[in-house]
């Protein structure tokens, strides 16, 4: 067996493993991404994305990041985004606010707001919603960790979303990371806003700092400084004014994903 034969065979085996795992093969996953160097990638549907932020008080930025991505997935065929929250976390995290969605650039009519009483109900609703072909994305806002939200649950969700083509965004808080089958994992934090024209004292256009922790979907770049306009994300070069102002302690050491199935990590 020559070396090239062996490599081909290995590639074939990896593909079949990817098929068994129902994970989109790398070529497929790359086809879901439109990416220009230096820009934030445009991600298509069918991905389970975890979005972490260090503290609950960053909840506004996190929801903005998820809805910004979800807005890009809305089409005439997929006309709704389902937002899930536990009923007793409304006061901790705040509820999505119609006029606020409007000023953010998201149509409030496209948002279905589900208040689940328990984590089991929330996961049930997430699976039910992602199975519907009219749903573009499911945004699950989970303020506290639950035992029910384990690897199996995320596995189910990732398989469902890959099968139906809708995306699931799990909004999570804190610095702990559990094993999950998410395709991508982001760590998001707000950043100081840009200058507002004519009024230096007022908050200007928003800025976020997004770090891709898992899912080597884009080559070479894992950190983005993002802005938001009604038409989509805008990418800025990272410039640090003064010292590293990142609150919330030192950033976590980057987790090295296990190299499985052609570079797409399975668990990390």
């Amino acid at each position: 067996m020559t070396l090239s034969d062996r490599q081909q065979r290995l590639a074939a085996l990896r593909d079949s493993i990817a098929n068994i795992e129902r994970k989109p093969a790398l070529a497929e996953a790359r086809a879901l991404v439109e990416h220009q160097p230096g820009e934030f990638p445009v991600l298509a549907g069918g991905l389970l994305q975890e979005m972490f932020t260090d503290e609950r008080r960053n909840a506004g930025a996190l929801l903005g990041f998820a809805l910004g991505q979800a807005k890009g997935l809305l089409t005439e065929q997929r006309l709704a985004v389902v937002y899930l929250q536990l009923a007793d976390e409304a006061q901790k995290l705040g509820m999505p606010y119609g006029p606020g969605l409007l000023s953010f650039g998201f149509d409030p009519d496209a948002l279905v707001f589900v208040r689940a009483a328990s984590m089991a109900e929330l996961l049930w609703a997430a699976e039910e919603a992602i199975a519907c072909r009219a749903v573009a994305a499911v945004v699950a806002d989970i303020g506290s960790h639950s035992r029910l939200l384990d690897f199996t649950a995320s596995r189910r969700l990732s398989m469902r979303s890959a099968a139906t083509g809708g995306s699931i965004f799990l909004l999570r808080y804190g610095q702990g990371r559990q094993a999950s089958a998410a395709h991508l994992r982001w760590r998001l934090s707000p950043d100081q806003s840009a200058q507002k024209r004519y009024d230096a004292k007022a908050p200007g256009p928003l800025r976020w700092r997004a770090q891709l922790e898992k899912g080597a979907i884009i080559k070479n770049q894992t950190e983005f400084v993002l802005g938001w306009t009604e038409n989509g994300f805008a990418t800025f070069t990272a410039q640090r004014r003064g010292a590293d102002r990142h609150a919330g302690g030192a950033p976590l050491p980057r987790i090295v994903p296990a190299q499985l199935a052609d570079g797409l990590s399975q668990t990390a």
Binding site: G98, V112, V114, A117, W124, E128, A129, V135
Partner: peptide, 23 residues
């Protein structure tokens, strides 16, 4: 499809749990 999804979720979670914003 979307209405049927809302029906299903309302029947399991209760009608007051599946909401829409009205301005």
């Amino acid at each position: 499809d979307l209405d049927q999804l809302n029906d299903r979720m309302s029947s399991r979670l209760g009608a007051m749990a599946v909401l829409r914003t009205q301005l």
